[in-house]
Every structure is written in C-alpha cells, then in structure tokens.
Write a protein that binds this DNA or RNA. Structure first.
Lengths: 293, 293
DNA sequence: ATACATTATGCTCAATAGGAGCATAATGTT
DNA sequence: AACATTATGCTCCTATTGAGCATAATGTAT
C-alpha cells in the first residue's frame, strides 16, 4: 500500500469568554450559530497570531491572553483536502460594543445549577437518559456518574462528557438521532463540542489559578468575585467560607473604598494583588469550589 | 495586503512512557536524539490513528491509551510549506523487547529529586541562575518560584517552565547561548520541549486520576505503587501515609497472595479495583503527592 | 425618629484530611 | 538466638473546610 503525505488546511477557532451581568458569554458569529474561525494563512507567523487576526477581522475584537484547547483532525470521507481544526480559549474583561455575545447556558442550560429551574431540567434529562440506558448496567453507570444522579456528586468540569453522553442518547440537537432536544441553542459542525471543551477547561482553571480576576473589574466586592466564580462553575457557594478562603490566600488587598448605591451595608472594594500574581499562576491559587450533591 | 491560505503538512509526535525498574522511560529513535514522529497521511482516518501508525512503523510498538498534548505551529521563515506539529502522550505497562528506551531523567536530571545527588545539581543550577538573573528583581522572582529556591516550594508539575527558564538562561544545550549545559542529554528540534510537556501532564494527571495503574503490573505491593508515583513525580513520600490514603480511596483490593524472594516481611499484593475504575477517571482518585520544600 | 429589611462581615464548632513518627509483626541472615 | 529488614497498624497534632450563628452598617417604610 502506498502512503501519501496529506496536505491540509489548518482552521483556527476561538472561544472568547466574558462575564456580563453575572452570566458567562461567548463571542459568536452568524447569529450565534458558530464560533469565530478562519484558515491559517501564510502571513500568520504563529498559530496564536492567526487566531488574533481572525477574531479581530470577524468581530473587531483584540484578544488578550490566549490558551490552546484541542486539535481536531478527523478526516471527512468526501473531501480530498484534509482539515485540521485547532481551537483556542481567550478571556476578556469588557465585551466592548460588539454584537454577537451569547450566554453559555443558552447552549448548555443543564450546566447552570444556580437556579431552581435547573432542578426541573435535570429531572427531565434524568428520565430521558434512564429510558435510553434501558437496563444496560454500563450505560446506567455512565449516566449516574456523569450527571451526578443517585447520590453521585456533580462534577462541574465534566461539561464535555455530559454533552457527549447526551449526544449518544440522541438528546441534543446535533445528534443524528435527535427528535426534540432540550430547549438548548445548537451550533453548526462541532462548535458546541469546542465550547464544551472551553467551559471544562475554564472551570478547571479557576480552581487553581487566579484567572477569575481577568473577568471581574479592577476593583470588586468579595460578593462580586464569588458570583463570578458561581457563574463560571454553575453552582452556588457558601458566602462566609468563600470570604475566608479568598482572604487567607493573600490574593486580594483591601482598598479604602466601598460600593455605593445598593441595598444593605455597603461592601468593601478589593483589588487583585498584582505583586505576586505572576507567582500565583505557577504556584497555584486554590480558589474554593467544594463539592455538592 | 493579500492573504493566502497556508497549505501545510501535519507532523505527529508521540511521547510513549513506561516504567522500567523504578525509572520512567520514553521510547526514542535515532539513538535517543528524537521522539518517534511522522507525517499525517491521507490514509489516516484520524490524528490518533496516525500516531499509532507511525509509532508501530518506527518502533514496532502498538499503543494503548493515547492523549493529545499540544499543537505547535510557528512558521520557519526559510520554509515555504507550513508545518503543524501535533504531539501526543501514551502509556504502556511493558516495554517489550524494543530498543530505544531512555530514562526521563537523562534528559531532565534536575527533575529527579529522589536522590542525594540531586541536591548538588540543584545547587549548581541555583548558582548559575542567580548569576544570570544578576540583580534584576523580576528574573530573580521567576527563578525562586520556578525552582523552589529561597523557601518557595517545589512544584513538580512545572517541568516545562523550568526548561524554558533554563533555556533563556543559556543553561541547556538546545539554547543558542549555551556553553556547557548541565550534563543532560539533548534532543533535536523542540523534542525536549515536547517531552517536558508530557512529563508535566503526566505528573498532573497521576494526582487526580488512577493512571498510575496503567504503569504498574496487574498485581503489585503498595510499596511498588508508591515507588511508581515517586518515580513519576520525582520526589519521595511518607510510606505509612501513602498506604492510608490509597486504602481510604477504595482504589485497590487485597489479594490473598504475597510478594516473595525479598528481604524482610513479605508484602501483600493488591490489584486495581476495576469495578469502579471507569468512574474514577471522571470523578477523580486523588492520589497523594503533598508538597515539600 | 423607630422598626425592619437587607447585605456585609466576624466568629465558633465539628468533621476531615494530611504530615510526622512510634510500635509491632513477619520474614531472612548471622 | 540475636539482629537486620521490610510491612503494617496506630496515635498525635495541625490545617482545611463545611455549616451556621451573631453582629454591623446601610436603606426604607411607618
């Protein structure tokens, strides 16, 4: 058998996330149907620069910190030229005046467990999954672990695993076997998979590096910081313990200013301690996110 | 300015790791100078299958579990065609009778902190680094944090960060400014960077998933398991506490057999509990690896 | 002005996890 | 029989963390 080196095009895909009034949002194009993407060009001196170029071209947005996610490269039988899709994650504090921002949880409503409504959705999913798994022991086990059913705990980082399980079960709209879906917004191609990968990665990352601080204002109250963590992880946490941990970590420093114009006792404003920030990214910051049922 | 879609070749690089008599080893080609690699071909139906194909072709080895690491794509000014290099990590229990296995710590001797000798090497590195950093505050800080100097703790997962720092300081042989090196074995191109990435990833992974069990025999003593963790992380740990933690995690089950032919009281053999192994990979296993000075 | 709602912040208590080391058990060697 | 050597069980102490009570400081309704 002869072997032929494949010539390919490399496509660069970006998941740019921001926090807008308590919801994580991503920058999309084509009315929310896909992520900004474009081909690697000879003019791009590196992959990262290619990503920056395309996001700026398509949305006018200049990226800050960028991180590689995953490279997909399955061959499509019909096509002659090979496509390698390299995905990136980026964060930004201010969403600017761009259009095209969409909430994470429009695409993954079951990932937001902060509201009462989420319980109902999870019940629906549970019923549908159990019906799909029928009485196959192995499938049932996967459902239990992945969705935290039956006393198993919910792992907020398993976004991709949950999406893939729902795909297999024909419960998401991209699935070829899907009839109705779960009221979520779908995406073209595998872009929702890529978004899931980005969510997983970010949820993992906020636990042990101080990346949250790239998403909140320069000065913030501890409640705002907590709510940012909650929005990203999709779960509520204990207020007093959160304060304690953040303060013990020496990650923030007090200012002498307070929040104004709200109900109740005004909250003190804090800022991220930039003097040891460089270090934290390496040595770890351990923001708390405990476990729950 | 005109833009041109770049045609590229995709190269697949594999870091295959095994444990051989208490040392992590990788499979190499060209007398240890590089990692097995090859171009993505039209016949490969997926990137993973391409990796498997090349490793088998070059070394006769069939891969088990494979995981993607990172994709490199910087353009080389001189070349017309673009090269995208996609790297993978794989593990295997038995090294077979292949040649080409080399110890991790030949390439990264400073990453092995189990022996007394490592202290001397670290002293040498510390002196050289401090000389390089001179009195620049920022550089000194990086050195302290990255190499755990001056009371900072050693982060065993920061293999790549340490390599890059040494590269900048001209202390590793790949560096253009390097005069002598540190007695390590170099590699061609950026293959030592890729190895560093794999080591970082594996060291991170053994903490919260039960991957170690893919590197030890089916039946093992708790000391063997501990020494496997120590070999991979490059640091020694407390024996009794290790036992306690492993047993409390419900990861292993006793057999009724014992080790034979060694000094001292014979140790009981254990095996990995496969009944909930699937779950552990998702819910986490938390093997201990504490911190040390 | 006073009572009350609301949010921030300080503090306690109990359970658990993790680091360090002592004590005992079971083998081989001299 | 004494001793070296390794395995295994157990205790003590400390740090971390989950849960909730108590107090402080503001705005709002009466």
């Amino acid at each position: 058998m002869n072997h032929h080196v494949a010539t390919c095009r490399a496509e660069l895909v970006a998941v740019l996330t921001t926090l807008q009034s308590g919801t994580p949002e991503i920058l999309t194009v084509q009315n929310g149907a896909c992520l900004p993407a474009g081909a690697l060009e000879t003019e791009h001196s590196s992959l990262q620069r290619g990503v920056r170029h395309w996001v700026e071209e398509l949305t006018g947005f200049r990226l800050g910190h960028v991180e590689q996610l995953y490279t997909f490269g399955d061959s499509v039988p019909a096509e002659t030229e090979r496509l390698v899709r390299i995905s990136y994650m980026a964060l930004t504090r201010d969403s600017g005046d761009q259009a095209g921002w969409r909430g994470w949880y429009q695409y993954f409503p079951w990932e937001d467990r902060r509201t009462e409504g989420s319980v109902a959705l999870l019940k629906t999913i549970e019923r549908a999954l159990l019906e799909w798994a029928a009485h196959e022991e192995e499938k049932l086990d996967r459902c239990r672990v992945t969705f935290g059913l039956n006393g198993e705990s919910w792992n907020d980082e398993a976004v991709l695993e949950r999406y893939e399980l729902l795909w297999e079960a024909g419960l998401v709209q991209e699935s070829p076997y899907c009839s109705a879906g779960l009221g979520e917004r779908p995406m073209l191609w595998d872009h929702r998979r890529i978004l899931a990968t980005a969510m997983s990665r970010l949820r993992a990352k906020i636990r042990y590096t101080p990346v949250v601080f790239e998403l909140v204002p320069e000065e913030f109250t501890l409640l705002q910081l907590q709510q940012a963590m909650e929005a990203l992880s999709g779960r509520l946490m204990h207020k007093q313990n959160f304060r304690r941990l953040v303060q013990n970590q020496d990650l923030v420093s007090e200012t002498d200013r307070y929040e104004s114009g709200v109900q109740g006792r005004p909250a003190r404003l804090y800022r991220f301690r930039t003097d040891n920030s460089e270090n934290c990214y390496l040595t770890g910051a351990k923001l708390p996110l405990g476990t729950f049922s």
